[in-house]
Simulated assay, not measured.
Amino acid sequence: MGYLSAKEVAEKWNISRRRVQILCEEGRIEGAFKLSDVWVIPKDAKKPADRRKTKKKPDNSGIDKIGSEG
């Protein structure tokens, strides 16, 4: 199994290096560990889902409007 740095993973996943570091600190990247002051991440690690994104509310535009009959 090979390992990558936070910088390499950031480029691979198209996110910032700092974001990768935060994910590591939160324990959200399986197998990642800190060696001295550098995060070491397994090459085959999966990108965790982004919890910061909110789910969209359903679109209510299909509901009939009150008083539109007639």
Rank of each mutant, 00 (worst) to 15 (best):
N60A: 11
K53M: 05
K57P: 06
R51L: 11
G27R: 05
D44Y: 05
E8C: 02
P42G: 09
T54D: 11
I22L: 14
S16D: 04
P48G: 09
S36Y: 11
W13R: 06
E69W: 10
R18I: 11
V20S: 01
C24P: 05
T54R: 15
C24K: 07
R28I: 03
P42H: 07
S61L: 05
V20Y: 04
G27H: 04
K55M: 14
K43W: 06
A49G: 04
A45D: 02
G70P: 08
I66N: 10
P48T: 06
D37T: 15
G62D: 10
S61Y: 05
A6W: 00
P58A: 06
G67C: 13
E69F: 11
I63M: 15
E11I: 10
C24T: 10
K47M: 14
V20A: 03
N60P: 08
S16P: 05
A32I: 01
D50V: 02
K47H: 08
I29Y: 02
R51D: 11
V20E: 01
E8T: 08
A49I: 06
I15P: 01
K7V: 04
K56R: 15
V9Y: 01
D44S: 06
R51G: 09
F33P: 03
E26I: 03
I29M: 02
G27S: 08
V40D: 00
I41W: 00
T54W: 09
L23H: 11
P42C: 11
K65M: 13
E8R: 05
D44M: 04
L23G: 09
K65E: 14
P58T: 09
A6P: 00
V38T: 12
R52N: 04
K34T: 07
K55D: 12
R52C: 00
D64Y: 14
E25V: 06
K56G: 13
R51N: 08
V20N: 01
R51C: 01
D64A: 15
I15Y: 02
I66L: 15
V9R: 03
E69D: 13
K65Q: 13
A10F: 02
R28D: 10
K12W: 04
R19G: 00
T54N: 13
D59E: 07
D59S: 10
P58W: 05
E30N: 06
G2H: 08
I63W: 15
N14M: 08
K57H: 13
K34A: 08
S68T: 13
K7W: 00
G67D: 12
I15K: 04
M1W: 07
E26M: 12
G67I: 13
E8S: 10
G70Q: 13
R51P: 04
E25T: 09
T54P: 03
A6K: 00
D64G: 05
D50P: 00
V38D: 08
I29V: 11
S16C: 02
I66Q: 10
Q21K: 08
W13A: 08
V9F: 01
I41A: 02
